[in-house]
Design a binder for these strands. Structure first.
Lengths: 259, 259
DNA sequence: CGACTTGTTGATGTACATCAAGGTACGTGG
DNA sequence: CCACGTACCTTGATGTACATCAACAAGTCG
């Protein structure tokens, strides 16, 4: 029914810092807001190291508590929950610039897991410094809230999908959504991108069986709005796909935090 | 398929303050953390008035932007989204102590609507003062983040429900979830409570049709774990219901903010 | 040493039969 | 009139089974 969970959880053993914050790869992205010098200094101090993980690694694990928070510098992951009998629901995907582990600062233990889809480079923050961020850097605190609220928006949209969209609309919406997020951070070239997930992931995201996902996906590609073969995804007709997905262009975000 | 949307949006016309913050009805709830004098003073200044709305009123409306943030002092509401053709998905319910409208501070316009289920008393904050809260009251800023993160947790759980639980498990889980939230804030007496929503709301929350919701609900009540008649809900066998719902006791929250 | 088989595994594609869920219709009771 | 209850038929989704295809490892032979 669902893929088996990979057992090995990442043991965070922050190596010495490699990339100084002033040279953080994320800083080039024009979709992120700029830091001032003071903020940059704090963040540099906030950062305790980096973590490199392989596909299939569990960065965070349901029912445990991690001492770390992570910002994704590169790579893809997904957040998911499982029922005791193994049924799996993928909640959302995480891309460069996304922030992982906030829930652990608010509850005693994680209510979901995070698994890497590709090789990832993570920026590691010790959780106990989060409070210092709130007391000294309200702009960064607001960024954290911004990220939490954006995650909430995505979940709302997902809930609408699974609850009320048809299977065709669901798949179209998910592919479009991920494409647009990837485009926002510069991962798309010539309307094409490498998608690191399989049909099983799509099925587990949309609450569908693998077989039905496959059939619906064939029907979707038959519309010639998208191509998806050997991990390579191409958006052929954006407007038509938006139509199929019942996509209402969501509100622009004023700015996007850096952290 | 889904209930029709009520047209009238609430026009916030903050009347003069009625309840001074020191006497806020929420302060008695032992599930909320205490304010210190300084925080209380700020919040009293933050508050611009109160708003009283009737059942069916749209407190916030998708695709608009409200100049206000609200804390619920009393009453029930629900957050929902609609597709252009009218399909409705209820995302979550809002109870006393919950905070409404944060998304509007992060995006240009609301991505969802909020409709009152009962008479409600709302505490009104002007949105532009939110930044002052972040700069001067990090503890309150953290509370806002706490609330956003808790909302995210609930949405995660909902997504798991709709995506992977059976219809029986779904309904059991929803009823249990709402019962426990109501219990947390002292709305439950003798394992019984008035639920202000209908089967149509349950259907729209769980992504099911009304007819199927009704049939499944009959099967659930046949298990004698709950009673639900004329808006009165009674929890007869808590453990058995948790079993049916595949409820994994979620982590305790260390504290709960007041705002 | 390199080239060619063989077996394995994971992702995808497709054909059924079965079942859960939807839609319409028409009840009741307050 | 609205919320709830139930019957009936239809359809969308599931589960099982099996086939294809590429990637990869191990072993064999010239």
């Amino acid at each position: 029914m669902t893929a088996t969970m990979l057992a090995a959880a990442a043991v965070p053993h922050p190596q010495g810092r490699k990339v100084p914050c002033e040279k953080c790869p994320l800083r080039d992205r024009e979709c992120l807001r700029d830091f001032n010098a003071k903020e940059l200094e704090f963040v540099a101090n906030f950062k305790s190291g980096e973590l490199n993980v392989e596909p299939g690694t569990n960065v965070l694990l349901q029912s445990t508590n991690s001492a770390h928070l992570y910002t994704i510098l590169s790579g893809w992951a997904f957040r998911y929950k499982t029922l005791p009998d193994g049924r799996r629901q993928i909640l959302n995907y995480a891309l460069p610039g996304d922030f992982l582990g906030l829930q652990g600062s608010v509850a005693d233990e994680m209510q979901h897991s995070v698994e890497a889809l590709t090789d990832m480079l993570l920026c590691v923050f010790p959780r106990e410094k989060l409070w210092g961020l709130y007391t000294n850097y309200p702009s960064l605190a607001f960024d954290v809230t911004w990220l939490a609220s954006r995650e909430e928006q995505i979940l709302d949209e997902n809930l609408l999908s699974i609850g009320r969209r048809t299977s065709m609309e669901r798949i179209a919406f998910l592919l479009l959504h991920l494409f647009l997020r990837a485009e926002e951070i510069g991962l798309v070239k010539n309307d094409a991108i490498q998608f690191p997930f399989t049909q099983q992931h799509v099925a587990d995201t949309l609450g569908m069986s693998l077989v039905h996902t496959n059939k619906t996906l064939r029907r979707l590609t038959a519309t010639k709005t998208v191509r998806w073969k050997d991990r390579k995804f191409e958006l052929v007709n954006r407007e038509a796909l938006m139509e199929i997905a019942r996509y209402s262009p969501s509100a622009q975000r004023a700015r996007r935090p850096f952290i």
